[in-house]
Amino acid sequence: MSDTEHVIIESGAARQPFNYAVGLHGSRFLQELRDHRRFMAVKCPRCAKVYIPPRRVCGACFVEMDEFVEVGPQGTIGTFTILRYAFIDPETGVQKPVPYGYGFIRLDGADTLFQHYIDIQDESRVKIGARVEPVFADERKGTVKDIRCFRIID
């Protein structure tokens, strides 16, 4: 028996499957995105803030929201970074290739930002305030990955 051997127990193939309910507000958004490439946000009846992704409750006003408004598809970069270190995606167990752009888009008409990838073919054009448009996936399945990324258009 080696005194210097540190015993490690590994989780191996253990994983936890989940079926997360999206909720009706989110379901409407994902279905519009999938079927019509439209971004549907929701507007607070009290403070008039336009939220994306849509959700049931305005946290600030504590009221239920049901007025859907179309926003985008174009917008501006609210803020961003360029990721240069790789990590394992816990959902797939695979590393995403780096570098890639990651940012928060202010879709035209929305008051909150939409998180997604940003195309960085020309890094010099990636800046706060740059105009962007979505690049849709060819096959859309009703997730936020129906958008591949946002690309700079000015």
Partner: peptide
């Protein structure tokens, strides 16, 4: 549903904050 699929790690979120 909304954040995890494209989330790029805690450092990226902080980096976006610093950029802003």
């Amino acid at each position: 549903v909304w954040d995890r699929l494209v989330f790029a790690g805690a450092i990226s979120g902080l980096a976006a904050e610093a950029q802003a």
